Deep mutational scan, measured.
Amino acid sequence: NQESVVAAQLIPINTALTLVMMTTRVVSPTGIPAEDIPRLISMQVNQVVPMGTTLMPDMVKGYA
């Protein structure tokens, strides 16, 4: 089963992602794949992401 990127903390809107903000977990439905974490660093979220929420492609500016 593929791991997806999950918020390790509350991420406010327009925050640039850092490694410490993200963790990985096997979730359903699947979100952004864990191997894309290096690509996500410094990208901004376009909404508030509560802790434990799976990051979906449409939540990250410039990802999709």
Rank of each mutant, 00 (worst) to 15 (best):
T30G: 08
M51K: 10
V5D: 00
N14D: 11
T23W: 14
I41Q: 08
P50C: 12
V49L: 08
Q44S: 09
N14G: 07
P33W: 08
P12G: 15
T23F: 11
V60S: 00
S42W: 11
P50K: 14
A16R: 06
I41W: 14
L17K: 00
P33D: 06
L40D: 00
E3G: 04
T24R: 13
L55M: 12
T54S: 06
S42L: 04
T23V: 11
I11R: 01
A7R: 02
V26I: 09
T18K: 11
I41S: 04
G31R: 03
N14M: 08
M21G: 02
S4W: 03
I41M: 10
G62Q: 08
G62M: 11
P29I: 14
T30F: 14
I32E: 00
A8D: 12
Q2G: 15
A7H: 01
T23H: 13
G62S: 11
V49W: 02
P38R: 09
P29T: 10
M22Q: 01
V26S: 13
G52K: 05
M21R: 04
A34E: 10
T18P: 00
Q2I: 12
V27H: 03
L17S: 00
Q44V: 11
D58S: 15
P50T: 15
V6P: 01
V49K: 00
A7Y: 01
V48D: 13
I37E: 03
I37V: 12
G31K: 02
T18H: 04
V45T: 10
I41L: 14
T30A: 12
P12V: 03
N1Q: 11
M56R: 12
V27T: 12
Q9H: 09
T15G: 04
M21C: 03
A8I: 08
E35W: 05
G62C: 15
N14I: 03
I32K: 01
A64G: 14
G62D: 08
V26A: 11
S28F: 10
T30E: 14
L40H: 00
M56V: 14
G31L: 02
V45G: 00
A34G: 11
R25D: 07
K61D: 05
R25A: 15
V26L: 13
L19C: 15
A64W: 03
R25W: 10
L40R: 00
E3K: 04
M59S: 03
V20K: 13
V20W: 10
T23A: 12
P29F: 11
I32H: 01
